[in-house]
Computed example of a mutant assay.
Amino acid sequence: MTIDSDALPATLRWASRLLHGQAVALGLVAAWLVWADLTATAADLPTALLVTAFAVGGAVALWALGSALARRRAGARAPAIVLQLMLLPVGWFMIQGGLGWLGVPLIALGLGVCALLVSTPTNRALGFD
Rank of each mutant, 00 (worst) to 15 (best):
residue 33 L to W: 08
residue 106 L to D: 10
residue 59 A to K: 08
residue 71 R to N: 09
residue 125 A to Q: 12
residue 6 D to M: 10
residue 105 P to G: 14
residue 16 S to V: 11
residue 118 V to W: 03
residue 68 A to N: 10
residue 121 P to G: 06
residue 124 R to P: 07
residue 61 A to T: 15
residue 3 I to F: 02
residue 51 V to F: 15
residue 51 V to D: 15
residue 65 L to V: 11
residue 2 T to G: 04
residue 13 R to P: 02
residue 25 A to Y: 01
residue 55 A to C: 10
residue 117 L to W: 01
residue 89 P to I: 03
residue 10 A to R: 13
residue 48 A to F: 13
residue 53 A to Q: 13
residue 118 V to E: 08
residue 5 S to W: 06
residue 121 P to K: 05
residue 27 G to Q: 04
residue 112 G to E: 06
residue 16 S to G: 12
residue 6 D to I: 05
residue 24 V to T: 08
residue 65 L to N: 11
residue 39 T to Q: 03
residue 5 S to L: 14
residue 101 W to L: 00
residue 91 G to E: 05
residue 7 A to F: 04
residue 31 A to D: 00
residue 45 L to C: 11
residue 6 D to W: 07
residue 128 F to N: 04
residue 119 S to R: 05
residue 119 S to W: 13
residue 39 T to I: 01
residue 117 L to S: 07
residue 70 A to E: 13
residue 122 T to V: 05
residue 36 A to M: 05
residue 106 L to A: 11
residue 113 V to C: 02
residue 91 G to S: 03
residue 23 A to S: 12
residue 36 A to L: 06
residue 35 W to C: 06
residue 91 G to Y: 01
residue 30 A to G: 04
residue 127 G to Q: 12
residue 53 A to C: 13
residue 8 L to I: 00
residue 102 L to D: 12
residue 74 A to D: 13
residue 18 L to T: 06
residue 81 I to Y: 03
residue 64 A to N: 15
residue 63 W to I: 09
residue 36 A to F: 09
residue 13 R to A: 15
residue 98 G to R: 12
residue 43 A to R: 10
residue 8 L to H: 02
residue 118 V to I: 07
residue 37 D to A: 01
residue 15 A to W: 10
residue 22 Q to G: 14
residue 64 A to V: 12
residue 129 D to F: 02
residue 69 L to I: 13
residue 103 G to F: 03
residue 59 A to C: 15
residue 68 A to V: 05
residue 24 V to E: 02
residue 51 V to I: 15
residue 41 T to L: 13
residue 124 R to A: 04
residue 57 G to L: 08
residue 102 L to K: 01
residue 5 S to P: 08
residue 34 V to W: 04
residue 79 P to R: 08
residue 23 A to M: 00
residue 13 R to K: 09
residue 19 L to E: 14
residue 79 P to M: 09
residue 100 G to L: 07
residue 96 Q to T: 11
residue 63 W to R: 14
residue 66 G to L: 10
residue 58 G to V: 14
residue 107 I to S: 04
residue 33 L to E: 05
residue 21 G to N: 03
residue 77 R to I: 09
residue 37 D to L: 06
